[in-house]
Amino acid sequence: MTRPSAADGSGSGGPRDVLAGGPAPVRRPRNRTRVRGGAPLPLLVPALLGLAFLVLPLLALLLRAPWSSMPELLTSAEVWQALRLSLVCATAATALSLVIGVPLAWLLARVEFPGRGLVRALVTLPLVLPPVVGGVALLMALGRNGVVGRWLDDWFGVTLPFTTAGVVVAEAFVAMPFLVIAVEGTLRAADPRYEEAAATLGASRFTAFRRVTLPLVAPGIAAGAVLAWARALGEFGATITFAGNFPGRTQTMPLSVYLALQSDPEAAIALSLVLLAVSVAVLAGLRDRWMTSA
């Protein structure tokens, strides 16, 4: 998913381009996926069902939205508090993921070491782990009574649960694997000969990373960062488990959507629409990478 160049590219279109009859040479790679004579029914019906399944709930959200009371709902102080907290925490979690995630991706992509496959699997684990389990694990590790958290409390007086920093930690735990996997994929696709050339010209490995590799994989890093940011923004399970729920401190948008659904469903819909709008904006930002290369 992180290598659109492989999907677009290099393969020669060949005779199928002639069949598709597209005269525009620029669009040639895309024409390869076109099926002549329409899709067969056994594929078309489930395909349309699948499309409806994914789109219908979002449409329902729009249909049931309390449009008349929307301005009032969206301008309330609580919504802005939750939205601001969400944006700040997701951005901080992404920044944290960049600082420690990009070097980790580089390590996985460029350095041969025993057990690399295992390390990669461990890095990917939070991707498939239920976030609530991640939250419990974080409590056990970084809670006030946790394996590491105990020392943080004793030595520095730092406790993470119930703090905004705790939200950032929970979100980074869940979101960083997206960044690492994306960046590692881009690094593997990038030609290592540029780095080797830099090395033969006397650059140290770190200089080569900084001056050659980073600019080379910048688009991959950007895409990974957006993915991680979006995942962090939507994070619920690990956050409520590890950081609790307090308005303005740890109550992010997804938490307030969940809690509002029980007391004030209209507010929950309004909040959901805000998150939907943010997601659409993220997708629009990634348009060039995914929607056109598909």
Binding site: G143, P161, F162, G244, L259
Partner: peptide, 21 residues
């Protein structure tokens, strides 16, 4: 002013059981 408003009584209780609160 609490540190957290929990979604049900058992999660409130368990924050103390886990010694987080």
């Amino acid at each position: 002013t609490p540190v957290s408003y929990e979604e049900d009584v058992k999660s409130a209780l368990n924050k103390v059981v886990l010694k987080e609160a």
